[in-house]
Design a protein around this nucleic acid. Structure first.
Length: 594
RNA sequence: GGGGGUGUAGCUCAGCUGGUUAGAGCGCAGGACUGUCAAUCCUGAGGCCGCGGGUUCAAGUCCCGUCACUCCCGCCA
């Protein structure tokens, strides 16, 4: 083992297999139990915990030194691994049947009191403190386990892709700003003052160039950068498994991705069935109100438009006559205890989400409905298959709003009424996305993914006449309601590319100016190609059962993009700015307080 | 950019309708104890109640502002 010459013959956990042997182990003082005579130390290294025993008679020097040890001191000990007597076995730790009778001890590092306990995992220090002392935080088993899982997942990805003949290639981090999608992080150039590099939002353009370059199968564990506001599942820098292949169709990439994910899940001890279910974008929106539906639970959106149009309820008939829909959810068992006031709150919640209103009803034991507008809801419970005790909510609005609002409520209700089964994994492919979406603000069509996404060959004829109906060869992989990856087949035909540019109002000149280098390459023998990018952080977060991707990143940033450990971002020297010909217009920072 | 939550000892937290000397557990320091494993027992130190302003006889507590952290919307593949 590494370090064997000087510091260790065994890892702490490995000592359990060395009963009767003389060993040397090194690590941290995890816990100390000083009985005045005999002293017990729980020694911790990355492998686990091993109990050390210091006897005053057998090793007086080591015992005296052990009296002065602090928690988290770093020590190296020699001694014999002995089996514990039966009454002193500790079944709670893997090495609980043995202990190390210490002969000699060396203190390798004496520590100041640590800012929070490594050993006590019953309390969780504030996240800011954990980030400030991330190196203490990662001594805690849960944090360590997340990083170990992440490393295993990456190894599994590499294993699958290497075996399939994929080539790992690095693409530049200092690259060119292509103002599409997210805001770029910019880096001023010293050698060309006034000009800027941009950090890549993804290696998208480079991986297409690699396909033109004939590499055929590429992947990269790629760091990506986006200068947007943060969230629990969003960091300014994050990692993707980026994959691209030539001479492929969507099913090839989907099958490959499934093989990768199966291997990743296996690292977390989870078996997922393949193939994953496939669902069209329109169907996902209609049934679940989301293009990344959480399929761990049912509660599908149901339609009552036709019946609602026949009621005397003006709210419904008005919407139906205007071409809108009346749709709703049945929340099983949620009706108990819902008061008039709770109903009003549901209404307000739906309005905050953009709906005009919300109708609620509770199915009573006799099958009738309790609702402020019960008299208009004849037959609703039967139509929706609702049972006594269920809560029904209805939204009447145009189709897009109703779908969006119900989709959000569906997720919230499942959470609120605890309808999501634990330890369930629901992967899904969402396909047949529209190629473009209408940008109402700027009154033009926008590429829904990016402008190199290939249109569906069956729909390409409508790209001028009816762009909104054209599907793309794009696919997202969704897990438990989170998008963990997305990709597409790219355009390799220049006539198609020109048509798409025209559709989204990108003139030939402007396209040439922004993406000229890619377009030139695509004219020089580009094979049909496509790929996918998987969000590594989100995937590992889900597999590790964590609520934030910060928990699976070694040194993450806070919600304001700061790193409390290093103090980044921070001011720089005036000299540095002068060299870059950059001047800040920001007001001088206040002295920090609090 | 907008909305919600949090901020009290090194850490996790309690502190009621404003009231006199701000508490607990863990950690830390000193002591006792020879088989514990969250060891136990005794003693002790440790507080700009995030920061600034205001109301009040009186503010950890109420009001305004501000900063930090956090969740969400906007934004973001």
């Amino acid at each position: 083992m590494i370090g064997a010459g000087r510091y260790r013959t065994h890892a702490a956990a490995g000592a359990a297999d060395a009963v009767g042997e003389s060993v040397r182990v090194s690590g941290w003082v995890h816990r100390r139990r000083d009985h005045g005579g005999v002293i017990f130390i729980d020694l911790r290294d990355r492998s686990g915990i091993l109990q050390l025993v210091f006897h005053p008679e057998q090793a007086p020097e080591a015992h005296a030194a052990a009296e002065r040890l602090h928690l988290e001191d770093v020590i190296c000990v020699d001694g014999e691994v002995v089996r514990r007597s039966e009454d002193t076995v500790n079944p709670r730790i893997p090495t609980g049947e043995v202990e190390l009778a210490v002969a000699t001890m060396e203190r390798l590092a004496e520590t100041e009191p640590v800012p929070f306990s490594v050993e006590d995992e019953s309390t969780e220090p504030s996240e800011e403190l954990r980030l400030t002392y991330r190196y203490i935080d990662m001594r805690r088993p849960r944090r360590l386990a997340a990083l170990e899982l992440r490393a295993r997942v990456v190894r599994a990805m590499r294993r699958v892709l290497d075996d399939e003949g994929f080539l790992e290639v690095e693409t530049p981090v200092l690259t060119r700003s292509t103002p599409e999608g997210a805001r770029d992080f910019l880096v001023p150039s010293r050698l060309s003052q006034g000009e800027w590099y941009a950090l890549p939002q993804s290696p998208q353009l480079f991986k297409q160039l690699l396909m033109v370059g004939g590499l055929e199968r590429y992947y990269q564990i790629a760091r990506c950068f986006r200068d947007e506001d943060l969230r629990a599942d969003r960091q300014p820098e994050f990692t993707q498994l980026d994959v691209e292949a030539s001479f492929v169709e969507p099913a090839d990439i989907e099958d490959l991705t499934e093989r990768v994910l199966v291997a990743c899940f296996a690292e977390a001890g989870i078996e997922i069935p393949v193939p994953f279910p496939r669902m069209g974008y329109d169907e996902a929106l209609r049934r679940f109100g989301s293009d990344r539906p959480d399929l761990r639970f049912g509660m599908e959106i149901q339609d009552w438009t036709e019946a609602a149009g026949r009621t005397d309820f003006a709210v419904f008939t008005g919407v139906v006559e205007a071409g809108g829909v009346v749709r709703g959810l049945v929340v099983p068992g949620a009706g108990a205890g819902v008061s008039r006031k709770d109903g009003d709150e549901l209404m307000a919640e739906a309005q905050a989400l953009g709906a005009k209103g919300l109708v609620w009803a509770i199915v009573q034991d006799d099958g009738t409905l309790r609702s402020p507008v019960a008299k208009f809801l004849d037959g609703l419970a039967d139509a929706f298959g609702a049972s006594p005790g269920d809560l029904i909510t209805l939204v009447a609005d145009d189709e897009r709003v109703a779908s969006e609002v119900l989709g959000t409520l569906r997720n919230r209700f499942a959470e609120r009424w605890d309808l999501i089964p634990a330890d369930t994994w629901a992967p899904l492919w969402v396909e047949d996305f529209p190629l473009v979406g209408w940008n109402a603000d700027e009154e033009r069509w926008d590429a829904l993914h990016h402008p190199f996404t290939a249109p569906h060959p069956d729909d390409i004829g409508r790209i001028t006449s009816d762009p909104g109906s054209v599907r793309s060869l794009a696919y997202d992989v969704v897990l438990n309601g989170l998008e963990i990856g997305g990709g597409s087949i790219r355009i390799h035909d220049q006539a198609v590319q020109a048509a798409v540019f025209e559709c989204i109002g990108l003139g030939a000149e402007e396209a040439e100016d922004r993406f000229g280098f890619l377009l030139r390459a695509l004219r020089l023998g580009a094979p049909p190609h496509g790929g996918i990018a998987l969000g590594l952080d989100r995937l590992v977060m889900l597999l590790a059962g964590e609520r934030s991707i910060r928990d699976v990143i070694a040194f993450p940033k806070t919600a304001t993009g700061a790193d409390p450990l290093t103090g980044a971002p921070a001011g720089v020297d005036e000299v540095q700015l002068t060299e870059l010909a950059v001047r800040s217009t920001a007001p001088p920072p206040e002295a920090p307080e609090g």
